[in-house]
Amino acid sequence: MKPFSYQRPGSLAQTFDLLSEYGSSARILAGGTDLIVGLRQQTVDASVLVDIKGIGEFLPGVALVDGHFVIGATTDISRICEYEKFRATFPALVEAMETVGSVQIRNRATLVGNVCNASPAADTVPPLAIYGAMVNVGGRDGTRLVPVQEFIQGPRQTALRPGEFVLSIQLPVPNAPLGVGFARLTRRRGVDLATVNLSCSIDSVGTVRFAFGAVGPRLVLGVDRSGVLADSGAPAGDRDAALANLIAGTSPRTDIRGTRDYRSAMLLVLGRRILAEAASRLGSGQP
């Protein structure tokens, strides 16, 4: 690794000072599972790492505040998965989190870091968007909430402005029945990026929402209000046509993980599968 210096601020105020002092040469260090790899492979450049794990204001785990789960920037994925109430409320997100890397990776990797890294293949992003996650961005002048799908603007690009960083992610507890599914296709589970990943929800009035990852520079969202996708008794041809209509919004590319056509075909197959999963969760009263 190229030399860099290291700072471990103890408070938010000190962190904002460091970010304004060092500007774009500073990088936030959370779990390091992307950043250290990037520094080692020299795809990332930084002269100062600002380790946020010493910030006193951050909650160590997950908190339920005013109908929202709040996940702090230093809470790793394994810890989040230990909360029974969280698991029961966001089962499709938990499935996505449990596909990230390995035990060792999840013991370090933060959910916030998975979002901030802004990889088009990040596995937690499609279900986060489907569950309506908001990114809580902090700056010296206060905080602002940005929907996750707007926060990630393209590969490695986020809505963060100079001097800002992410304090937490907020997930609203669904206030009406909702069924959500998640699927991911990969060549080798554990250590390869997703070829495609997707999540969908069905609500009690028959609205179906889809989020497709790894098939465009940003997350692709689609909504079907016709009721066809929510109705498992509708003719299969009509359902496939409605799903294909949503998939038409994606722009998959051919690369080492699969061809464009293969990715599109898999979106249809996996889309059907997670619709069934979401419908059964809606039926069982589990989100």
Partner: peptide, 25 residues
């Protein structure tokens, strides 16, 4: 780079990849 686990140690009782953690952390 975190893929093989040959460097697995327990840090504060939790299993991690020592190649992805800075000594200073």
């Amino acid at each position: 780079v975190g893929e093989c686990g040959a460097c697995t140690v327990h840090f504060d009782g939790r299993s991690i990849n020592a190649c992805l953690m800075l000594a200073i952390e």
